Simulated assay, not measured.
Amino acid sequence: MPLDHFSVIVPAAKLDGMVEFLISSLGHLGFKEHMRPIPTVIGMGDAMPFLWLYGAEAAEGDVATTQEKLIKMQHIAFTAENAEQVRAYHAAALKAGGTCNGAPGPRPQYHPGYYGAFVLDPVCGINVEVVCHSCVGEA
């Protein structure tokens, strides 16, 4: 199962500089900014966004809270070939101790045919997703 997309957390004050660097250094390969659903979240890639940059504000004087916040902002997604693989992942991840963070189902707010499931891992609470991008008509 190939990697589908992932997120990287950067200081909010450095977010635009990171975008400029990535476009300047990878633009010749077709790498570009695709979307900013909110000002501190940027989807980047070539044909589609596969790298998501999140700008995070540090909590003053509370390193533990800041680290916990950054860990929970991490996200990694894997590509499934069909909705059944997405459902099987979700069931297996819950059986392995994960916590549901989004049951298997269509996510038309992302794009037509997007069918995914989200589980927080039981160790760090990182959001792990499996997604099918061509599951049009699945419920």
Rank of each mutant, 00 (worst) to 15 (best):
E33I: 09
E33M: 13
E33S: 14
E33Y: 08
H34Q: 00
H34V: 01
M35Q: 13
M35K: 11
M35N: 13
M35T: 10
R36E: 05
R36L: 02
R36C: 05
I38G: 11
I38Y: 12
T40R: 10
T40I: 11
T40G: 11
T40S: 13
V41Y: 14
I42H: 08
G43I: 04
G43Y: 04
M44K: 11
M44G: 09
M44L: 11
G45D: 02
A47P: 04
A47N: 13
M48Q: 15
M48C: 08
P49Q: 01
F50S: 08
F50W: 11
L51G: 10
W52R: 12
L53H: 06
A56I: 08
A56P: 09
E57H: 02
E57V: 06
E57M: 02
A58R: 12
A59W: 11
E60C: 09
G61F: 09
D62W: 11
D62I: 09
V63P: 12
A64S: 14
T65F: 15
T66E: 13
Q67R: 15
E68I: 13
E68R: 15
K69C: 08
K69V: 08
K69N: 14
L70F: 12
L70H: 07
I71T: 15
I71Q: 14
I71E: 07
K72T: 05
M73W: 02
H75L: 09
F78T: 01
T79I: 13
A80L: 00
E81M: 08
A83D: 13
E84Q: 03
E84S: 00
E84A: 01
Q85K: 02
Q85R: 02
V86L: 02
V86C: 03
V86K: 03
R87D: 15
A88Q: 10
Y89Q: 05
Y89E: 02
H90I: 01
A91I: 06
A92P: 07
L94K: 07
L94W: 04
A96D: 01
A96E: 01
G97R: 05
G97D: 05
G98L: 09
T99P: 00
N101M: 08
N101L: 11
G102P: 07
A103D: 14
P104W: 00
P104D: 05
G105R: 00
G105E: 08
G105A: 01
P106V: 04
R107W: 02
R107C: 03
P108Q: 06
Y110W: 01
H111A: 05
H111I: 00
H111V: 01
P112G: 09
Y114E: 00
Y114N: 02
Y115P: 09
Y115D: 02
G116P: 09
F118L: 14
F118A: 04
V119C: 07
L120V: 05
L120I: 08
L120A: 12
P122D: 04
V123C: 12
V123W: 11
V123I: 14
C124D: 11
C124I: 10
C124W: 13
